[in-house]
């Protein structure tokens, strides 16, 4: 089985089976445009820890990547999150954010939707103040911007 080498941002080379990483639209596109088998694909935006995690996800779902389009994949995930996925995605917020970023960069729609839905679940029903705490954001809105519908100070 064909093997591919991926170079991560922290200079780790990860070998993986070719068909496993084909869930990534970005890598699929890169491989179509290059010739040699021994080439190393550089992924400057992806840390090895995240890539390992993504490969773990791809391994579990490898036989589900039939010829579905990106839109269909996106729709598939809108339903219920499976117990395995739920366990897989049970990570802290900053890892989740990184997974979103990388899934988007690698163009893995199903993983992106899974991560986004999980992030949404973590902030759903929260006030803006709570959201800031969860997401580690500073409030840079002025009072009048924040209080659009509150009574204007007379």
């Amino acid at each position: 089985m064909a093997v591919i080498k991926l170079l991560t941002s922290d200079n780790v080379i990860i070998e993986t089976e070719m068909d496993l990483i084909m869930c990534s639209g970005t890598i699929k596109g890169m491989l179509e445009s290059c010739s040699g088998d021994d080439e190393i694909v550089p992924l400057p935006k992806v840390r090895s820890a995240i890539l390992t995690k993504i490969l773990q996800w791809a391994q579990f779902h490898r036989y589900e990547f039939a010829d579905t389009t990106a839109e269909e994949e996106a729709e598939n995930v809108c339903g219920v999150i499976s117990p395995w996925d739920s366990d897989f995605i049970n990570v802290d917020m900053s890892t989740l954010v990184e997974l979103i970023e990388v899934a988007n960069f690698l163009n893995i729609q199903r993983l992106l939707q899974l991560a986004c839905k999980t992030a949404a679940n973590m902030i759903a029903g929260k006030t803006s103040e709570d959201m800031r705490k969860i997401l580690n954001i500073k409030n840079d809105l002025t009072f009048s911007e924040e209080a659009v519908m509150r009574k204007e100070s007379k």
Binding site: A120, I123, A124, G125, K126, T127, S128, D130, M131, R132, L135, I137, K138, N139, D140, L141, E145, E146
Partner: peptide
């Protein structure tokens, strides 16, 4: 309602 909170988080 979450959209509103989201929009009031930051610029």
């Amino acid at each position: 309602e979450d959209h509103l909170s989201f929009a009031e988080t930051c610029h």
